[in-house]
Design a protein around this nucleic acid. Structure first.
Lengths: 205, 205
DNA sequence: TGTACATCAGTGAACGCGCGTTCACTGATGTAC
DNA sequence: TGTACATCAGTGAACGCGCGTTCACTGATGTAC
């Protein structure tokens, strides 16, 4: 435990991190400003030095999440992959890994009910994640016979939807809707089939 | 407004329907037992004649939702479709339509945070919806060259995940993540590509 | 058909609780001279 | 290097609120005789 006096030092970020832990543990409804303050070792009123209120704190958590997601997406398409399938699978896997490793961020982003248009910054950074995904998929699309290519935006939307659906139904819900397949396997094979439908990688996978 | 005296007549179902409206309007966090009672024209305490508490009311709403979804899925594969694609698309479309027409149920089922294993009845009826989806997809799978068939459970999971992802990201979020494509178009073309990847319907779509 | 009675759905008052938010304040920090 | 002072992060007490839940009750319903 770092010593602290009257001034916390970095309360703002400490609150965000406490919020993330709470959201992860109790869901978006279980999160309260007061408890976040308590766990950060601070009076509830202190929170108002840094955030407009409860929802702004969640929004900040979501915003940091979109930033991480954007970076993760950018990273996923940085390394040249041996095949289109490998490239796409890397992007999908990155999404799964993100949800797994940053559940608090993930919930704040997609399950907390805060609107992506709540603040211009949030909208901006969400768009950046979106754009990163678009770029990642565009790179793959170039390796596919031109005749079969869907519009890039649609291609990205399909990948995102499939990844998101797998996370929501088969990863985050726990074994509730469980199949005998792991989320990773489910997603990777789904992407493989989809990609074959586009005419890419005839002999692959 | 139906007249009522001291006894409501059908308070239980009236509460469920009020709950659905509230959940739809304010999200799962905005729903309160007290307000549901108020809108049903009844004291909060009256709710406890019919439900164990707030969460049981939500669970009942979810349960009725799974029932509707199961029926919708069963209906979607009842009519013989001219092609495998048409069959699959009908199932996907049914899912979208369900989310659109029964947003309260949908939220209670997938966004309220109540566990599917909360009660045995809820688990049973959720499984029934799941099974209906499995059957709907199995029928399609039979029309596909055997060599390419994925395990039926995986096939169903892919369809579900794609549909669910499209709903969550591009239908329910409103225009937040909007693409230029409608959710229906997105889903239908996604299913088309996926199905071609399975070797079905070579010249179709 | 009429009366007595058991049942139980809904009442209304009350509770303790923790929430989000406000306010005037206090005391640590760091800058100017 | 030392002192005065402005800044502003965090305090702590207080608030009103609506929540979920409990309890002893009341009065409508429907059944038995």
């Amino acid at each position: 435990m770092a010593k602290r006096g009257y001034h916390h030092g970095n309360l703002r970020q400490a609150l965000v991190e406490t919020a993330l832990t709470l959201i992860e543990a109790r869901g978006p409804a279980g999160f309260t400003l007061s408890e976040a303050a308590r766990q950060a070792g601070v009076t509830p009123a202190a929170v108002y030095r840094h955030f407009g209120g409860r929802d702004d704190l969640i929004a900040e958590a979501a915003q940091q999440g979109y930033l991480i997601l954007a970076e993760v997406m950018e990273e996923a398409c940085r390394h040249d992959q041996p095949s289109a399938l490998a490239g796409l699978a890397a992007v999908g896997r990155a999404y799964l890994t993100f949800a797994e490793r940053h559940p608090g961020h993930y919930i704040a982003m997609f399950e907390s009910g805060i609107s992506i248009n709540r603040t211009p910054e949030l909208a901006r950074v969400a768009l950046r994640a979106r754009t990163a995904l678009d770029h990642a998929t565009e790179a793959v699309l170039r390796r596919i016979p031109p005749g079969q290519r869907p519009p890039p935006a649609m291609f990205a939307a399909h990948l995102w939807a499939l990844s998101h659906g797998v996370v929501e139904l088969f990863a985050r819900a726990g074994p509730a809707f469980g199949t005998s397949f792991s989320p990773d396997e489910l997603l990777e094979r789904g992407i493989g089939i989809y990609l074959r439908g586009l005419g890419g990688e005839p002999g692959d996978e």
